[in-house]
C-alpha cells in the first residue's frame, strides 16, 4: 500500500508575473514575505496591484527560505530587491526575515489579503495553513474583528494532508479529486491525528476500504474538525478559504456542504493571501513613512 520512497506530498511550487505591469512606472513597490511552517510566499505589489509572486516550500532555515522565495519571484523580471521600497514579514518565521522593515502577524495579513483578493464583502476567512488553522472574522477593510486558532495539533492542517498523501501513495494534488470517486461517502475517520494516521489507514484498508474511501474519510474528518472551529467564531458571508488546503476540493467542498455556505475562490492563488496582506501593509507603512518625511 505505502511506497515510502516517492514524495507524494510534494505540492507544486507556484510562480506568477503580471507582464502588463511596468514596475518602473510604479510609485510604490512593496514586498510581503510569508514564512509558514510548510510554505513560503514572496509577493510584490506595484501601486497596490499584484506584480509577481513565488510560493515555495519552506526549508529548515527561515532567512534562507525568505531569500529563495524573493529570488524566485524576482527572477521572472528585471526588478531587483534594492528597487523594493518597503518589506513586511509575516508567518511563523517573520522574525527571521533579515530584510523586513516590519513584521505583522499572519492572521492580520490573511484577513487583509483575503479582503483584497476576494473583495470587501469578505467577512469570514478560514486560513488552513501548514501547521495550524485559523478562523477569522474581519470588517469591510479587512481588519481582524476576532479569531480562533486550533490547539497544538497538526490534524486538520496542510502538514497532516502531506502525511496522508505519502501514506496512501497518492500525489497530494490528486487527493481532493480521488476522494469523490467513491460510491458512497464513508463516515469520517475517528481520529485525524497525524501520528496515528498510518495505523488507522492500515486498519481501514484491512477492513476492506478502498484507497479513495480512506481519502474521503480523511478529507471529511479534516473538514469536520475545522467546521467546529468556524462555528465557534461564527460564519458570516462572504466566506473564503486561504492557505494550501484551499486548493484541496476534497476538504473545501465538504466544509461548504457541512456549513451550507458558498465560498469566494481567491485568485490567482489562495495560498498567497498572507503574502498579499503583508505587501498591502507594507504599502500603508511606506505611505506613512513618506508622509512623515514630507
Amino acid at each position: 500500500m505505502v511506497e515510502e520512497k516517492k514524495e507524494y506530498w510534494r505540492w507544486t511550487e507556484g510562480l506568477y508575473l503580471n507582464k502588463d505591469i511596468d514596475w518602473r512606472k510604479a510609485k510604490s513597490i512593496t514586498l510581503g514575505v510569508d514564512i509558514g511552517s510548510v510554505s513560503t510566499q514572496a509577493v510584490v505589489l506595484t501601486d497596490g496591484k499584484i506584480y509577481c509572486f513565488a510560493s515555495i516550500r519552506t526549508g529548515s532555515d527561515s532567512p534562507d527560505s525568505a531569500r529563495k522565495a524573493v529570488e524566485s519571484a524576482l527572477k521572472q523580471t528585471d526588478l531587483k530587491q534594492e528597487n523594493i521600497h518597503y518589506t513586511v514579514g509575516t508567518g511563523y518565521g517573520r522574525v527571521n526575515i533579515p530584510f523586513a522593515n516590519k513584521t505583522v502577524t499572519e492572521i492580520a495579513c490573511h484577513a487583509r489579503g483575503a479582503n483584497y483578493m476576494g473583495g470587501p464583502t469578505i467577512r469570514t476567512i478560514l486560513d488552513m495553513g501548514g501547521q495550524d488553522c485559523k478562523a477569522i472574522q474581519c470588517d469591510e477593510r479587512g481588519k481582524v474583528v476576532q479569531f480562533l486558532m486550533n490547539d497544538k495539533c497538526a490534524a486538520g492542517t496542510g502538514r497532516g494532508m502531506e502525511v496522508i498523501a505519502n501514506l496512501m501513495a497518492v500525489p497530494i494534488t490528486d487527493i481532493g479529486r480521488l476522494s469523490f470517486e467513491i460510491d458512497k461517502e464513508p463516515p469520517p475517520v475517528s481520529s485525524t491525528c497525524v501520528v496515528f494516521a498510518k495505523t488507522e489507514a492500515i486498519g481501514l484498508m484491512r477492513e476492506g476500504w478502498t484507497k479513495n474511501q480512506v481519502l474521503a474519510a480523511y478529507c471529511s474528518a479534516m473538514a469536520h474538525r475545522v467546521v467546529t472551529l468556524l462555528q465557534r467564531v461564527g460564519v458570516n458571508k462572504d466566506f473564503t478559504i486561504t492557505g494550501g488546503i484551499a486548493k484541496n476540493i476534497g476538504v473545501t467542498r465538504r466544509i461548504l456542504n457541512e456549513l451550507k455556505v458558498d465560498m469566494v475562490q481567491l485568485q490567482p492563488d489562495p495560498q498567497i493571501a498572507g503574502g498579499v496582506g503583508a505587501s498591502l501593509f507594507a504599502a500603508d507603512l511606506l505611505e506613512k513613512q513618506r508622509k512623515a518625511a514630507g
Binding site: V104, T105, E106, I107, V144, Q146, F147, K152
Partner: peptide, 15 residues
C-alpha cells in the same frame, strides 16, 4: 508552543 502563543497574542493586540 512559543511560536503559536506569540502569534496568538500579537494577533489579539493587533485586532
Amino acid at each position: 508552543d512559543e511560536a503559536q502563543v506569540i502569534d496568538r497574542l500579537e494577533s489579539f493586540v493587533e485586532s
